[in-house]
Nucleic acid binder design. Structure first.
Lengths: 246, 246
DNA sequence: GAATGGCGTTCAGATATATGAACTTTCCGT
DNA sequence: ACGGAAAGTTCATATATCTGAACGCCATTC
C-alpha cells in the first residue's frame, strides 16, 4: 500500500496532537521512520503549506491544513441548523456552548460559542477529541443509540467483553440520562467545570449532542440550564428532521 | 521528490475547493493522474479518515482532516486575544464579525462570530480564501504594510509590473483606509453586504484584520460601526503587543 | 575561540510504488 | 429484465521512492 502517503498523514496527526512545534528527529523517532524519509515527506508537506517551518527547523500544522479542515465543516450540513441554536443558547444562558458528534469511541467537538463578557475563558476545544463515555456530549450521544450499538462506541474496558454487556455503572448512567433527557458531567473532563448536554438526532449524519459548560459555583441552576439545552437540542432535531424529508 | 505525497495533498485541496463530493474518475482527470494511482492514494486517505466515502463511491473531506486543521488554529496565538474581541463586537453591534489574516495575495478567514437572532445568515466563511485587495479585511491588512511589501501581496494585474507601482486607484483606496483608520467594502464581495474592517498588528504573526459584515439597508450607521471595529482592533493590537514583551 | 556533539541534509543502491491494460461490477436506458 | 456503457478494481512490470551511512552545518560547551 502507499506507504509514503500514510506516513505523511501520520506526521500530520502527530503534529496536530502535539501542542508545540516538533523537529525532524523526534517526529521520525516517534513514528519509527528513518530520518531521511521523514525529511522528504516533510519537505512535500511544507511545499504545499500543510506544514510550516518555524525557527529552529521545527514543524507545525500550516494554514492550508486549516483550510482543508474547514471544508469538512461545510459538508456537515447539520451545522447550518445547530450553530444558530448554539448562538441562542449562549445568548440566553451566558455560558459557553458546544456541538459535538460521535465518532467511533470518541466525541469530537465541531463548534464552540463563547459568551460575551471577560470571564474566565474555557480552553478552546474546537477539533478536540475526547472519549465519549466521559463527556456530557458523548453520553448524550450514546444514550439513545440502539442497545447493541452502544458497546461498539466504547473502549474495551468500559463495554465488557463477551456479551457486549455494559459495565453496570455505566448502563445505569445512560438510563438516567434517557430518563432525564440530558446528561451531566461535573468536573470529570475538566476540574470544576460542569457540562450539560442533550442529544441531537440527525437522520443524515452521525449522532451528536448540544452541550453547555460553566464553572461550578456559578449561580446558574442545573435544571434551568438543562431545560434550555434540551430545548435547543430538540429544536435542532426537529429542523433536521424536516430537512431530510425534502 | 515524493510524488505520491504531493498528489495526496493535491487531492485534499481539490476536494476542499469542490463543494460536492467527487468520484474517482473526475479527481484523476482534473489532477492528471492515472485512475489506478488515484485509487491507491484515495484508499490511503480514506483509511486514515482524512476522506470519507459517501454513497456512489464519492469522496469528501473527512473528520480527521478537520481535527488537523483545528490544530492550526490552536497554534495561532492571536486567537486567544482576538476571539473575545469578536464576541464583544458582535454582542455590541448585533452583526457578524470576522478575523482574517493575510496569506500571500489572499485574506483567509479564521474566525466568525454570528449574532443571536434569526436574521438572514451570511454564508459560512471560516476557512474561506478571498483575494486580499477586494475584501475589507484584506485592504485593512494591506494598508499599513511598508510600501514596498504591498505589491507582493497583490495579484499581477493589480500591482503593475516594472516599478512595483500600484494601480493608481488602488493606491488611493489604501491611502483613504489609512486616513480613516478602517476599510469599507460595499457589495464587492457579496452583493448587498457591507464590510468594515480595521487592522490588527500582531508582532508574532501575519498581518490581519477584524471586520464586521451586515446587510446594506440595516439601520446601523457606518461611522458608529466603524468606531467599534477600530476599537476592537486596537484593543487586540494592544494586548498582542503586551504578550510579545513577556 | 576551538572543539565537540547533535541535527539536518545529501546520495547511490535496494525495494516498494506508479502505471496502463484487462477485468469486474455497477448503473442507466431501452 | 436485458444489454450496454461507464466506473471502479486488480495485476505484472518499469520506475521512482525508501533507506542508512556519510557529510556538513549550527549551536553549545569548555
Amino acid at each position: 500500500m502507499s506507504n509514503s502517503v500514510l506516513r505523511a498523514l501520520e506526521i500530520l496527526e502527530l503534529l496536530s496532537k502535539a501542542d508545540r512545534p516538533m523537529a525532524l528527529t523526534p517526529i521520525a523517532e516517534q513514528l519509527g521512520i528513518p530520518k531521511s524519509t521523514a525529511h522528504t515527506i516533510l519537505r512535500a508537506l511544507v511545499s504545499r503549506e500543510f506544514l510550516v517551518v518555524s525557527e529552529h527547523a521545527s514543524y507545525s500544522i500550516g494554514l492550508k491544513a486549516f483550510e482543508i479542515g474547514a471544508a469538512h465543516l461545510r459538508s456537515v450540513s447539520a451545522l447550518d441548523i445547530v450553530t444558530p441554536q448554539l448562538v441562542e443558547l449562549t445568548h440566553a444562558l451566558g455560558v459557553t456552548s458546544h456541538y459535538a458528534i460521535l465518532d467511533a469511541t470518541d466525541a469530537v467537538y465541531l463548534v464552540k460559542e463563547d459568551p460575551p463578557g471577560l470571564g474566565i475563558k474555557l480552553a478552546s476545544s474546537v477539533g478536540a477529541r475526547l472519549p465519549a463515555h466521559v463527556t456530557a456530549v458523548g453520553k448524550a450521544s450514546l444514550a439513545w443509540l440502539p442497545e447493541d450499538e452502544i458497546a461498539g462506541h466504547l473502549p474495551a474496558d468500559v463495554g465488557t467483553g463477551p456479551g457486549s454487556q455494559l459495565l453496570d455503572g455505566f448502563a445505569e448512567q445512560l438510563a438516567k440520562v434517557r430518563q432525564q433527557g440530558f446528561s451531566v458531567d461535573d468536573g470529570d473532563t475538566a476540574a470544576g467545570v460542569r457540562c450539560i448536554a442533550a442529544p441531537v438526532f440527525n437522520p443524515a449524519g452521525p449522532p451528536g449532542a448540544i452541550g453547555v459548560s460553566y464553572l461550578l459555583g456559578s449561580p446558574l441552576e442545573l435544571d434551568a440550564a438543562a431545560a434550555q439545552v434540551v430545548q435547543a437540542a430538540e429544536r435542532s432535531t426537529a429542523q433536521l428532521g424536516k430537512r431530510t424529508s425534502r
